[in-house]
Structure formats: C-alpha cells, structure tokens
Design a protein around this nucleic acid. Structure first.
Length: 281
DNA sequence: TGCCAGGCTTCAC
DNA sequence: GTGAAGCATGGC
C-alpha cells in the first residue's frame, strides 16, 4: 500500500482490489453511501470517513494517519491479499471466475458485531434500500449524535438503548414484525446473556449456535453476523441469490474445501455477480 | 396500484 | 423432522 499525505487531514492512498461502489452494493454494509459529489461516506461507531476515488486506484481519505492506522486500515481489511484469493479460484469454473472478476474490488469489512446482529435481523424479507432506510431511522431516533464536517451524524444505537424501548416504539422504525426480534436481541446483548465480546474468541460452531439462540436469528442471519461482524472468513450465508447460483451451477455440491479460509469472500463474489446477472445489481 | 423482499417462527402432520 | 402458512412495511 502506497501512502502519502496530501492536504492536512487528508490521506492519499493507492489501494488494490478496492472498489467503493462494489463494497457499498455488496449487501454487507448499510452505512456506506454514495454522496452527491460521487465520493462515499462510511459511518462506523462514532466515526465518519469520506473517501473519494482519484482514479488509477488512488483514493483520498479525510482522516489523519493515526486514525487510518488504528481504525480504518483494519475496518477495510486492507492487510488481506484479495488478489491471491481471486487467483485461487478454479480456472475451469467459468461462473466463479467471472464472479470474482466482476466483484474484484469487494472486501469483507470488519464491522461491529452488535450492529451486524441487529441489522441482519431487520434485513429479513426486506430489499436493500428498505434496510438502509430502517437502519438510518434507528440511528436517528436512538443513536448517539456525533459531529462531522458535514454536520451531526448518529452512531448505531447501543443495545442498552434499544433494550430500553418498547417493542411498539421500535415498530415505528419500519421494522414491522421484526421489532420483537430486535428487542429480544437488544435485551440479550445488554444483559450479557449474549456475550458478543466473549464470543469473539469462540470456535465457529460455538459462535453460530450462540447467535442462533437469539429469537429471530436463523442460519442465514447468523452466518452474516459471523462473516461481517466477526470476520469469520469461512462463513457462507445462503440467501435467495446464493441458492439460485447453487441450484443452477453447483448441483453436485459447492467446493467449500477448495476455498477454505476465504469461503466468505467467494460468497460475496457470487452474491454480487448473481444480482448483476438477474438485473438487481 | 400491486408486488415482493440478504428469513424466521409457528404449527400441522 | 419436514413442509407450508403467516408475517408488516417500504420502495419500485
């Protein structure tokens, strides 16, 4: 990674295998949004980062070097070699080769486990724009405000805050029947019954079962939380798009063993590519 | 205006 | 254990 300092408070980086649009549209995050000027704003915790593509694989980030090194570098998983994972794709697998090429700028972000749990619970049977809208409403109503150059923003609400709401109150955030699920997850997390921090060290199977113990969390949501909130890179969430690809292309079974250690990345390539093929990208 | 969505729980059988 | 019904609501 090539690193220089431009104007004060702005870092210019050369990043490989990094495409903001692809990451924003890959369905893993709902608070990375394109601004009117074509740049992107990433909200994480009580932080906001503006990233602008400069062309030629170069990007301008409106943060200092220290903040980049201590937070955003890991957040965007910039120390991982996604090119190596793409090159490991079976050359005889035309579909996957094309999928990996089409989504070559996708990275698995390291997002907050609680935010991922709550977000993917409310994502079920919602379209991506509706998910973004519901998340934004939750943040505005219950998130802690913080200042940015562009004005006041709101952090994702803490579990304690949502646990203190009634199900009816949460229902006003376009959660529909999922309000009771979000409320249950908030209570379990706030009380410590679900120890998300402690589960960071648990085996994949233990983590999966713990997540599925939450009301409203099944295999798919739990897998998303594992991949996007705990960076468990072998998690392979199966949604309608993945099932479509598996049914059409991998009737004899998907070669998970071949991609051990980065099945989650492969899953993202398929998700992003399959939506494109079906006109939803 | 209708249709349908990064699924899950519940309830028959 | 398996399969089908039912679910709330926003965005296209």
């Amino acid at each position: 990674m090539y690193l220089t300092v431009g104007e004060i408070g702005v870092l210019e980086l050369e990043l490989r295998d990094f495409d903001l649009k692809q990451i924003a549209d890959s369905g893993q995050c709902f608070r990375l949004n394109r601004a009117a000027d074509g740049s992107y704003n990433a909200d994480a915790g009580e932080r906001r980062l503006n990233i602008r593509g400069l062309g030629g694989g170069r990007f301008a980030l409106d943060c200092g070097r220290e903040e980049f090194e201590t937070f955003w570098r890991a957040y965007f998983d910039l120390d991982a070699d996604y090119g190596a994972w793409r090159r490991a794709v079976d050359a005889e697998d035309d579909y996957l080769t094309q999928a990996a090429e089409y989504g070559s700028g996708i990275r698995i972000l390291r997002q907050d486990p609680w935010e991922m749990l709550c977000t993917f619970i409310l994502s079920q049977r919602k379209k991506i724009p509706a998910i973004k809208s519901a998340v934004e409403t939750l943040c505005r109503k219950y998130g802690k405000p913080f200042e940015t150059d562009g004005g006041i923003r709101f952090a994702f609400p803490a579990p304690e805050r949502l646990a203190g709401c009634t199900v009816e109150e949460l229902g006003t955030c376009a959660l529909g029947y999922r309000a009771k699920y979000v409320h249950a997850a908030a209570r379990m997390t706030a009380s410590g019954e679900l120890d998300l921090a402690g589960l960071g060290k648990a085996e994949d199977e233990v983590l999966l079962e713990a997540l599925k113990g939450v009301y409203g969390v099944g295999d798919k949501v739990a897998s998303c939380v594992m991949l996007f909130g705990f960076h468990r890179m072998d998690a392979f969430p199966k949604d309608v798009w993945i099932y479509k690809a598996l049914d059409a292309r991998y009737r004899d079974g998907f070669p998970y063993d071949r991609y051990r250690g980065f099945n989650g990345v492969i899953q993202q390539y398929i998700f992003y590519y399959q939506r494109f093929l079906d006109g939803q990208g």
